[in-house]
Design a protein around this nucleic acid. Sequence first.
RNA 1: GUGGGCGUAGCUCAGUCGGUUAGAGCGCCAGGUUGUGGCCCUGGAGGUCGCGGGUUCAAGUCCCGUCGCUCACCCCA
Length: 434
Amino acid sequence: MVELKGLPGFRDFYPEELAARSFLLGVWKEVARRYGFEEYDGPPLEPLELYTRKSGDEIVQQLYEFEDKGGRRVALRPEMTPTLARMVGARAPALRKPVRWFSTPQLFRYERKQRGRLREHFQLNLDILGEVDVLADAELLAAALDIMRATGLDATQVRARVSDRRVLAAIFRHVGVAEETLEPVYGVVDKLEREPRERLEAQLKNLGLEPQTIAGIFEATQLRGIEELEARFGGVPSVSEGIAELSKYLEHLEDLGVREFVDIDLSVVRGLAYYTGIVFELWDAQRKLRAICGGGRYDELLQLIAGVDMPALGFGMGDVVLSELLRDHGLLPKPGRSLDCFVAWLGADGQRHALRATQALRSAGLSVIFEFRDRRLANQLKSADQLGARRAVILGPKEVEEKQARVRDMSTGAERVVRFDELAATLAAELGDG
RNA sequence: GUGGGCGUAGCUCAGUCGGUUAGAGCGCCAGGUUGUGGCCCUGGAGGUCGCGGGUUCAAGUCCCGUCGCUCACCCCA
């Protein structure tokens, strides 16, 4: 018989792994709540066109895409933003602006799996729609960084790299890049860290750029911090405008208490074509992993998807890379289960009393497991220990005779007896949440 | 799609020059005298050595093929 495995790039979540995932999704939802975002969701399966319209047909090879029984071309969602754009677009006039929504969809992509990149993942999407002020950009990044903090990561472990497509565009135009060449240049800049400079220079040359233009591009992308940017390009009017906004942005981040995480880094452009303004990525400080999170402003996407003119910005944060980083830093919750009571029993009458005690304790809201088999008390207590029980309730011939249960505190070993008719109320008061 | 690495117990792995009944640790189950967990000791269950073929008196070990996993590239949430 052939062993039946799961599909490549799809995960089985054993309890310990699901605990880590739940922890992470819990942090996401908690911080989103603190920032006043509302949760929404959409269908996991969408018309293929929702994705091809924005990105062109070549994206199809990266999609889980097929024809359904009704002959429709459909795809498992690879990202949430188009669905969000459609949903918001459809009710745009009625929604109070700015819209602050978040979702934690499971997303799918058809591509070979590798470290930090599977065919399926969960991703927090947090978006603000209907606000042009750079305050919204700062609010968005602050939320992403507060999530880092809430998981226990600090500014020595995670960095936010911030760039601005308008500033980059202004600089690139200034050094001689033609309007229609901007996108391909972004594509080259995006590879800055992954490929040798000579290869990138060759690629830029192939785009028909002059040597001094190429030099200018490299110079710009090596700038770090607002001061360097100001010193080098502050004199260019179209650039200084963007610098002023970036300065405001950083000031807001200072006031929102997350400035220590943030670096200006013009080599960040983001892969997706729809970004229009400030963009950012979150990275582990050592840059050993992939980006933890990426996002920015996409003011024209709603026009494209929904025919609605509405500025927007948002980010996506996946569970895979972030989980790896948290594991590296020992920040995932410790494995192990917890249980309020384990009911142990001995003797012929013990079993029925154990069931009755269990039922009473469960009715009182406690989590309870009782022993299935008639076996030595030592092994029953060992089970209680393994199950993380806070109390063991022991029902043997003596206890049954006296109508009193023996209650053992599993952390201290202290024992006492409690009358059967008071057992549930007593333990519920002791162990219940409250 | 391209290239590298790796396939031995549930997990992490050892296995010498090819040699007889394939091992360890962890985990699991049980025992260590009558009803008391964590530590310790002992025992047990659990393996088609990924699969197929070849060489050989003899293959986990060498050769060929194949499948799978993995990392990287491409691309990118």
